[in-house]
Amino acid sequence: MQSAWLSAFAFLLVSTLVGAGLLGAASVLRVRAKYDSPLKHNTYECGEEPAGMSWMQFHARYYVVALFFVLFDVEAAFFFPWATVLREEGTSAFIAAVTFAAVLMLGWLYAVRKEALEWQ
């Protein structure tokens, strides 16, 4: 089964070749422009001159979403090994998971009451 990783990475290699191959094909097929204009290489801002760079600060709510994602994703990472051994471990594994989920959902309830999950 370990060797299946080799096949999987070969698959990724093929996918990369698909992407790179299409770009390569395009660079051959492409029609070249006869003349160039500096305006053509402007950043698109609905036809206006672009106002400054766009590498700037963004809203803090994205940070909150990232925090929740980390929380719940770590939880999911714990569930995966548990899911595979549940059949052998039986009731004790079930109780452990219920306790774990209860603690997690308590945190979720707190976040809901604090309106931290609202997109505002």
């Binding site: 060797s3 299946a4 080799l6 096949s7 990475f9 070969a10 698959f11 093929v14």
Partner: peptide, 14 residues
Amino acid sequence: NELVHGALYGTLIA
């Protein structure tokens, strides 16, 4: 062998 298998089936499936 697995590399060839992955590449072959990868090409086919892609």
